[in-house]
Amino acid sequence: MPLFQFGTKTIEYELTRSNRRKTVSISVNQQGVQVVAPNTAEEQTIENILHRKGTWIRTQLLNFEEMKQSCLQRKFISGEKLPYLGRQYRLKVIKTNESIKPEISFYQGQFRAYVHTEIPEHQYRELLMPLYVEWVKHRGMIFTKDRMNKFSDKFQHYPNSIVIKDQEHRWGSCTPARNILLNWRIFLAPASIVDYVLVHELAHLKYMNHSNEYWDTVRMLLPDYEQKKEWLRVNGSTLNI
């Protein structure tokens, strides 16, 4: 595989040539860096573009490395990281002698959990995970309403309701009654991926199928939806705790 040097780091990338492309496209996923370039693009031109995007590429690679490590089931102990909208936030567990129920909050860029000193660590996940999920659902709903308003105003179609729940096999769905259901785990993904799922379901308010007209609507609302769709296909299995 070809390489390029960015600072002190040597980065591999997979290069694909295409006579259908007019510009160089760079993407990063769990498999690494993927470059699609026109047949006529010179290697030096490609390398120059990689260097210009070097900081972004390194950040994406680090994010995927964190995702791989986060696939291990969390124990909800101090020092672990919990995801939200594509970022990882450290968890700090605070033990207290006060007679309080376990609780979890987000403060100054980190999750904080409060548990009684007599609760053993092996019970933390059982007690704290439901609280974390409820936090994600609550914050996810705030995010969803804001983003959905933006897309709905452009599309001029509005759902009757939005529900965030635990869905085993779908990231989202749209019912005949014009209700949009979202899997809470989608809010572990980057915000742009959540946008794709919202647009995917919103377009179903007009087209309850996956016809050409449907995908044209998705593209109108989110021109680069294909990249988001592919990201979700490749990385969806990492969206868990």
Rank of each mutant, 00 (worst) to 15 (best):
M1G: 13
P2S: 07
F6Y: 12
T8S: 09
T10V: 15
I11G: 06
E12S: 11
L15M: 11
L15E: 08
R17L: 00
S18I: 09
K22C: 10
V24P: 13
S25V: 09
I26Q: 12
I26T: 12
V28A: 09
Q30A: 14
Q34W: 09
Q34F: 05
P38V: 06
N39G: 15
E42R: 15
E43W: 06
E43F: 07
E43C: 08
Q44I: 12
I46C: 05
I46S: 02
E47D: 14
E47M: 09
R52P: 06
K53T: 06
T55E: 05
W56G: 06
T59H: 06
L61Q: 04
F64C: 11
E65P: 00
K68F: 11
L72C: 00
L72N: 02
R74N: 10
R74P: 12
R74K: 14
E80Q: 11
K81Q: 13
L82M: 09
L85P: 04
L85T: 09
Y89A: 04
T96E: 06
T96C: 15
I100S: 15
I100Y: 15
I100V: 15
K101W: 13
E103F: 02
F106C: 14
Q108F: 01
G109S: 12
G109T: 12
Q110T: 12
Q110C: 15
V115N: 08
V115Y: 08
T117D: 05
I119P: 03
H122E: 01
Y124P: 05
R125E: 14
E126C: 12
M129H: 10
M129Y: 10
M129G: 06
E134G: 00
E134Y: 07
K137G: 01
G140K: 10
F143E: 09
T144P: 07
K145A: 04
M148S: 12
K154A: 05
Q156N: 08
H157S: 08
I162M: 07
I164Y: 09
K165C: 07
E168W: 00
E168Q: 02
E168V: 06
R170T: 11
W171M: 00
W171T: 00
P176I: 08
R178C: 12
R178E: 13
R178D: 14
N179C: 10
N179F: 00
L181C: 01
N183F: 02
W184H: 14
W184G: 09
W184S: 10
P190A: 14
S192W: 02
V194R: 04
D195A: 05
D195T: 03
D195S: 01
Y196R: 01
V197K: 00
H200P: 03
H200W: 03
A203Y: 13
K206M: 14
H210A: 01
E213Q: 03
W215E: 00
D216K: 13
D216W: 10
T217P: 08
V218C: 03
R219L: 02
R219T: 02
M220Y: 14
L221G: 01
Y225D: 03
E226A: 12
E226S: 11
E226Q: 15
Q227C: 04
W231S: 11
L232T: 01
L232F: 05
R233C: 13
R233E: 10
V234E: 05
G236F: 02
G236H: 03
G236E: 03
G236W: 01
S237A: 15
L239T: 08
N240D: 07
